[in-house]
Computed example of a mutant assay.
Amino acid sequence: MRRRRFVAGALGTASGVVLGSAAARAAAPTPRTQDWRAVPAPGSTPAAQLRRIAAAGPGAAWAVGEEGRGGPSQGLALALYWNGTSWTKSDLASLGYTGRLSDVAGVCATAAWSVGLPSGDASPLLRWDGSAWREASFPGRGETGVRLDAVTVGSDGRVWACGTRGGAARLLCGDGKRWRWLDPLPVTTANLYRVVPGPSGDVWVGGDQATGGGWSGLVARWNGAWTVLPLITGLRLGIGDLHVAAADDVWAVGTEAGVGGPPGRPGNPALAHWDGSAWTRVQPGFTVGALSGIAGDADGRAAWIAGWNYQDQSRSTYLRRDGDAWTVVRGPAGGATAPYLNDVAPIPGTGGFWSAGMTSPAPYPPTEAYTERWG
């Protein structure tokens, strides 16, 4: 069963807290503005949003999501490409795919991968060839019940997608030509929302697992066999993104939906750190909103978190790593009336970062796709 995801399905945000320090948690620093700037995205059919963004360098980036969404109704696939100067909208009409694209991973200007929610029988696996997106074949393509939720590329060039086949959460692994499904995750009632490479050739996934009428945050590692970490407990908590610096240095971001409420009720941001033996929940600097994506710097250290502060929606909201603390940073003024971020990603070779989302948290017209860039 798919869990209810608030508005855009994005996840929690935090502020000025030092891991393990009660004093620092009690006195969060004042938010400060950095040089994030809005970058115009090409027009699309409202309501539109970008779910994920990835870059291969300063002259190649991809962002995917949906357009033509009407409230709870799923929109049509939307894909943008950055050529170093501007975003252009990709023509997806020839694919015959009408569902939402949920994730993207870039290799170089002529190679990237994307996956989307099921449209018809199953999810698509798409490959960028330098000028257009093409559908790729894989075991289970077109098979009822096959779902691909997220995709990444390891340092060795192998492509990994997480999803569902045969009623179980799994990984699909391939080199672009040959693909295979790996052993099922040994967890029942699991949903996976993110897959990321580890520094040692391992692969990590994040999502949630049903627990006694609700669900808790799920993180697991694949290195030839599955290792499932202890659950990150909370009130209907799901993990939407991970950053893995080492097997004993993992950051997870997500949203805690709480005890319930009316449709569209904001959740609470969730941030947790794994030290190799236990999870530590780090208290955010605001209480209502979302944390959606986390990205590392050139040294592999967690650096930025993208999110949304329900109590101050005038600018985009980030967390920036300062030593052992996370500090709130606000985006540019005037970029959008109430920007909502779904993701943040590094730009290799530059020290910069992209973020992506939508111009407001409401998935109704006139909401448009939105991007910002740092550095």
Score class of each variant (00 low, 15 high):
R236G: 00
G130F: 03
P348Y: 09
A109H: 09
A109M: 07
G57I: 03
D121L: 14
A47R: 01
W215C: 06
H273A: 09
V196Y: 07
G357Q: 03
R321H: 12
F138D: 00
R315K: 14
R32I: 12
V115G: 03
S316L: 02
V219T: 04
G375W: 04
G12T: 00
P184T: 11
R236T: 09
A14N: 06
P346A: 07
A79I: 02
A28R: 14
I53A: 02
A93E: 14
G201R: 07
S73Q: 14
Q209A: 14
G334R: 03
Q49L: 14
Y318W: 09
R301E: 14
G207V: 02
A278N: 00
V17N: 13
W354Q: 07
P366D: 02
A306G: 11
A24D: 15
W113K: 07
P266R: 08
R3H: 10
I232F: 10
G116Q: 07
D175C: 08
W304D: 02
A369T: 12
T45L: 13
A10G: 03
G357N: 08
P40K: 04
R25Y: 10
L231W: 10
R236Q: 12
A41C: 15
R3K: 06
W326D: 12
D103N: 15
T33F: 10
L185F: 03
R141W: 01
S131Q: 12
G140L: 07
S21Q: 12
D343K: 02
G96M: 07
I53S: 04
G258I: 04
P230V: 05
W133V: 05
T98N: 09
Y97I: 01
V205C: 01
A252C: 07
A63D: 09
P139E: 09
R2F: 10
A122P: 01
G20K: 08
G166L: 06
V228W: 08
D129M: 05
D202S: 10
A302I: 13
L229T: 08
V329I: 15
W308M: 00
G234T: 06
L242V: 08
P199I: 04
S21G: 05
V151C: 01
A247C: 10
P124I: 01
